[in-house]
Amino acid sequence: MASDEIIGSDSPLTAEQRDVLAIVLDLIVPASVDGRRPSAADVDVLGYISASEPGTLTELRGELDQLDADARERHGEGFVALNADVRQALVDDIRAAEPGFMRSLAIQTVTCYYQDDRVLEAIGVEARPPFPKGYEVPSGDLTLLDPVRKRGRVWRET
């Protein structure tokens, strides 16, 4: 990527890279079938990475470019132009050959995704910090300990 392509833009990626990224994010976490959980492409993963993990952007750019280049080499057109099945197969192939490929992207994606209000509400978690409200946890049924008490002392005499 020529760095001048992104000068003047707020984005750390070129338009092409962003298009590839949107598709990859949807491959990592697609929307749920019931529509309640958004696709990862619809949460601001790039904003999260830029703010929290800027040191990984170089790797990300390289991986997005590699995906596009592999698509051209194998199929004669860029990743975005491929149909969904071919894209999926290409990504699966690369990940099988290079298990670390886009692993940190996947980790960053879920880190951002599971802090998004819509996602939290869909998985039944209130969208708020744990403090100060906290949570209720039942104390538990202590009669379950009866067999342990009955068995008696188990520590070793010295």
Partner: peptide, 22 residues
């Protein structure tokens, strides 16, 4: 917690990419 579960699941191979994620 949510992120911890998802990150651990991906790292340990218990949560796949794609359709099976949710």
């Amino acid at each position: 917690p949510p992120v911890g579960t998802a990150r651990g699941g991906i790292a340990q191979g218990a949560i796949p990419w794609g359709e099976g994620h949710h």
